[in-house]
Write a protein that binds this DNA or RNA. Structure first.
Lengths: 118, 118
DNA sequence: ATTTATACTATCCTTTTTGACCGTTATTGC
DNA sequence: GCAATAACGGTCAAAAAGGATAGTATAAAT
């Protein structure tokens, strides 16, 4: 009998054909690694993130933050109950397991800039 | 004076706000890292890649291969001049600089599978 | 009393990515 | 003569991602 069904990996309800695509499903997209990269160093508030990433729109930023939170990579801590809110975002322990990877991603991008666009 | 224009990084005509997003612009997307991952070990022909990645469509695979080639990460070597063609894909030297990163991406995905979906 | 500030959310729309499906070329095997 | 094969490309459509813009609640500052 032929193997007709390729064995899939599963994480949080989504199927991935390969361990590499699983990772990319979680940190892929235009902004997630940028957010994670900025959170490596320290906790940041929503508007602080916006200042670090001036080209992202508010809507996209909050969608991405929510997705990262749902995947358990970041945590959202609220300090006030009424507006104006104070909210801080930081990496969870699970999110911290990504630090070496995020750092490598940033470093490779850096090295490309050094070599090809100076 | 306020700084109104965020300093952008540039690679192959595209602008990125951050070294991490530059990397993701090059290897991001649903399939690119999977292709690169399979090419780490050895050169592969088009149909061999298809067998390794049974859930990608032919069109998408060829689009992604072309994009990777245009970014200089893989090279396409044609062995015959008339159909049926023999074509082999392999990493360029530039593409090989990504091997540790691709490996880390795959390893992190693996570790997630180990911990959370066994 | 009005403005400013925070951290969003809601609509609506455009762009990008991915998929389904079929066609092409020339050679080899039946 | 017909099907199979390799490596695609073309067209159309759906889905996913991202952007523009405006609005919300409440408190402190002016």
């Amino acid at each position: 009998m032929e193997n007709s069904e390729p064995k899939m990996l599963n994480f949080r309800g989504k199927e991935y054909p390969c361990c590499a695509s699983l990772t990319m499903g979680i940190i892929g997209g235009k902004w997630k690694t940028v957010i994670l990269y900025h959170l490596i160093e320290k906790k940041l508030r929503y508007n602080e993130l916006r200042k670090e990433m001036p080209t992202v729109t508010e809507r996209t930023l909050s969608l991405q933050l929510k997705a990262l939170e749902e995947d358990g990579l970041i945590k959202r801590k609220v300090y006030t109950s009424k507006p104006p809110l104070k909210v801080e975002y930081s990496l969870t322990d699970f999110g911290k397991t990504l630090i070496p990877l995020i750092q490598s991603i940033a470093d490779w991008g850096d090295s490309v800039v050094e070599k090809y666009s100076k």
